[in-house]
Simulated scan of single mutants.
Amino acid sequence: MGPLHGTRVLELGSFIAGPFAGQLLADYGAEVVKIEPPATGDPMRRWGITKDGESLWWPAIARNKKSVTVDLRGERGQELVRELAATADVVLENFRPGTLRKWGLDYETLSALNPGIVVVHVSGFGQTGPNSGLAGFGSVAEAVGGIRHTTGSPDDAPARTGISLGDSLAALFAVIGTQAALLERARSGRGQEVDVAIYEAVFALMESTLADYHAGGVLRKRSGSVLPGVAPSNVYPTADGAEVVIAANADTVFARLAEAMGQPELATDERYATHQARGARMAELDALVSAWTSARKSDELIDELNRHGVPVGRINTAASILTDPHFAAREMIQWRRNQHGTELPMNGVVPKFSRTPGEITRTGPALGADTDEVLAAVADGERLGRLRADGVV
């Protein structure tokens, strides 16, 4: 009974950006009906690391959803989805702009059947503008949105993070936009379109880079593991081979770090006493901190810094997260069995709700597992039999 209980979402599309948004909406209690092509389904079913012929990502990205197979490329399948949309609150899609109009599933058509429908588009470059019709994966959007220029070492080519950052950011904005549109509909009674461009989702995170360049004459560049002028705030080694991030760049926090290091005089040393001074001497200050951290085991170091109120965190891996007591206490590791009976860990629900918590009631379903149940509302047994015989569902 999550906060979106009673909200019905039709998820059209595949891969990451749209389906991850659908996962989050389902986590919050929405009924998410995923429309997939008959026989093949979403390519995410086979994406990345697989076990028993199924992606290990699929049980999570399709969790809490219903799988319904419909051929969207044919008129009879399109008519079925129009009928389903008449009973839905949201249609979520991530096809190339223009595809829904070609199929008669555009906002104008759907809103004539259901004035309250919210249609959420996720695409590389948005529904309008000169680049709207271009293909656009998340990796390309990360480049166009500007984040790749700032990511990595200054001596190397622009780097990417080890996850699908652009797609995930777009999914988050899609969820925000969906909920904002539903809130507005409660006042007006009318739905609307929500247009999420992946490159804009990336660009929205780019802080003051435009003003820095235009008014300040500074083009922010790749700076590795640090932000120029912000110190000490870096990755530091430990005696047992672990790495930790220490963020002690504020004056008061740096004073606490100096106390923990047994060198309180550093906080009043004119070379390090101010934010500007520390930033100007980043390399030598990082060397001082590294000399201290490298002589201590990570657990001892983290405990000592926590006692002094210095922000610190181990650089975690999947292996260490699985045994982290804080992740466990926050229910951020959820163990569920997939359709093959394999017990898998997956990320918990974010954020936490005090009265209507989200939950994981089901892992990613088998292809078409819910076709009969969902389509029974718009097609009787005889019609459904003909549609199945003709490969429409």
Rank of each mutant, 00 (worst) to 15 (best):
M1F: 10
H5Y: 11
R8F: 10
A17G: 06
A21E: 13
G22K: 15
L24G: 00
E31V: 11
E36M: 08
P38C: 04
G41T: 11
R46P: 01
D52T: 04
S55K: 14
I61T: 10
A62L: 08
R63P: 11
S67N: 12
D71I: 06
L72M: 13
R82A: 11
A85S: 13
L100A: 04
L113T: 01
P115F: 08
S123D: 07
G124L: 07
G126N: 11
G145Q: 00
G146Q: 03
T151H: 10
G152T: 02
G162T: 08
I163G: 01
A170W: 14
L172H: 13
V202P: 08
T209P: 13
Y213E: 07
A215P: 00
G217D: 00
S223L: 01
G241V: 05
A242Y: 15
N249K: 03
T252L: 10
A258C: 05
A277S: 14
R278T: 02
D286Q: 12
A287W: 09
L288F: 09
S294L: 14
E304V: 08
R307P: 03
I315A: 00
L322N: 09
D324W: 15
F327I: 07
A328C: 05
A329N: 06
R337I: 01
K352Y: 13
R355D: 14
G358I: 03
R362Q: 14
A366M: 13
A366F: 14
V374I: 15
A377W: 12
V378C: 06
V378R: 05
A379H: 04
D380K: 02
G391H: 11
V393G: 02
